[in-house]
Amino acid sequence: MRASVLREVGADLGVEALADPRPGYGEVLVEVAACGVCHTDLHVMKGEVAFPAPCVLGHEITGHVAELGAGVSGLNVGDRVACSFIMPCGRCRHCVRGHEDLCETFFAFNRLKGTLYDGTSRLADLDGKPIAMYSMGGLAEYAVVPATDVFPLPAGLDLNNAAILGCSVFTSYGAVKNVARLGVGESVAVVAVGGIGLNIVQMAAAFGASTIVAVDVSAEKLALARELGATHVVDASEEDAVARVREITGGRGVDVAFEALGAATTVETAIGSVDDGGRVVLVGIAPAGVTARLNIAHVVRRKIQILGSYGARARTDMPAVLELAATGRIQVDPLITDRFDLDGAGAAYRALDERRIVGRAVVDVKPKD
């Protein structure tokens, strides 16, 4: 099969011929239709997040079931499916407590070693040398995915566009519902409205937020945030974002501030934007070692909660995300502002690095119907 391979940190992606993968017990072979372009992959490419190389990146996919491994039920060859970036083992201490976003097996085997849960990768060169998998390694014509992370795609959803449901939308759902526990009528600020921040905007609207303030330095992104449900926008390149958020909310600040970039300045903006007793939910992944300052007395005296959010719970939350999209409570198609083919995957990540992607980009591994 053809796959986009990262041979070493700092190198460009190049399409190569790899051995056709096969699913093991409890696994599904997916013929990939499309793969979302995510900043976390870019962190790996730049060496900001440690991961083995050579590897195949790409961690939010859609496609068709091509083959079922032994022990898999509830799916059929040919089914349209979507997969999230967290692939729960279903057996570790966190999974059995319903906290699949903390799956120890996923982090120990996949995120540290680039393998599935028997300690081996399903990807290899034609001469048999292993290629690491970042999640399922979705920038390829085929991907092997644990059956715990393969979900039927509702009719009516565009197969290729729906790829972004597996990370961008999935992560936003986890942040809004599970971590912030956003209540109807609460006020929200979303600091940095890129691919994930835009989804937090529309997810907050879907869960009944009364005021949704989008903060960014890009007029294009702020305009798209308005289309997706933001009631107010703040251009942080032109005005003091914290002061403006507080002005919008009558001097109080918002009930919940989401930070969706992973930078010290945006984290500090989020902390400064919340009301007394407010929640700050950190969603953006920062390069290893990045820290942010906080006024300890302010956080303590104002009873501010600072919460981390990483993804969501695949087996319970991915079906809910698919339902939200299928019923139109959240939108998918307007979020996709850029498309690339598999040969153009390297160009996609260069565009992302240069902040030329307004919403979310998708790599169409198979041409879009």
Rank of each mutant, 00 (worst) to 15 (best):
V5P: 01
E8F: 11
D12Q: 15
A17E: 14
L18T: 07
A19M: 06
G24Y: 01
V28K: 00
L29A: 01
A33I: 03
C35G: 02
G36K: 00
C38L: 01
H39M: 05
L42V: 08
H43Q: 09
M45R: 15
K46E: 15
E48P: 00
P52L: 06
V56G: 09
T62M: 04
G63D: 00
A70C: 08
G74H: 01
G74C: 00
N76K: 15
V77R: 02
G78T: 09
R80N: 02
V81C: 01
S84L: 05
F85Q: 02
H94Q: 13
R97F: 08
H99D: 08
L102S: 12
L102V: 05
C103V: 04
R111A: 13
G114T: 02
L116D: 01
Y117G: 00
T120V: 10
R122T: 10
D125Q: 12
D125K: 13
D125H: 14
G128R: 08
I131A: 10
M133Q: 15
M133G: 04
S135P: 05
E141H: 14
Y142K: 15
V145N: 04
P146M: 14
A147K: 06
T148V: 09
V150W: 15
P152Y: 00
P152M: 08
L153D: 02
A155N: 12
A155I: 02
G156Q: 03
G156D: 03
L159N: 03
N160V: 07
I164K: 09
L165N: 00
L165H: 00
C167I: 05
F170Y: 15
A175V: 08
V176A: 03
V179L: 01
A180N: 05
A180S: 10
A180G: 06
L182Q: 03
G183E: 12
G185R: 01
E186A: 03
E186T: 01
I196K: 13
N199T: 02
A205V: 02
F207C: 02
T211K: 14
D216A: 10
D216E: 11
S218E: 06
A219E: 12
A223Q: 12
R226T: 11
L228M: 08
T231M: 05
D235M: 08
D240H: 09
V245P: 11
G251Q: 06
G251M: 05
D255M: 02
A257S: 14
E259C: 07
L261M: 14
G262F: 04
A263D: 14
V267Y: 06
E268C: 14
T269S: 12
G272K: 03
V283L: 10
G284R: 08
A288N: 10
V290R: 12
L294M: 13
L294A: 13
N295H: 12
V299Q: 15
R301I: 13
L307K: 06
S309F: 07
G311P: 09
A312D: 15
R315E: 04
D317H: 07
A325H: 09
A325I: 07
A326I: 04
I330M: 08
I336N: 08
D338Y: 12
G344I: 10
G344F: 10
A345N: 15
Y349N: 03
Y349W: 14
A351E: 13
E354M: 11
G359S: 12
G359P: 12
G359E: 10
R360T: 11
D364C: 07
V365A: 09
D369K: 11
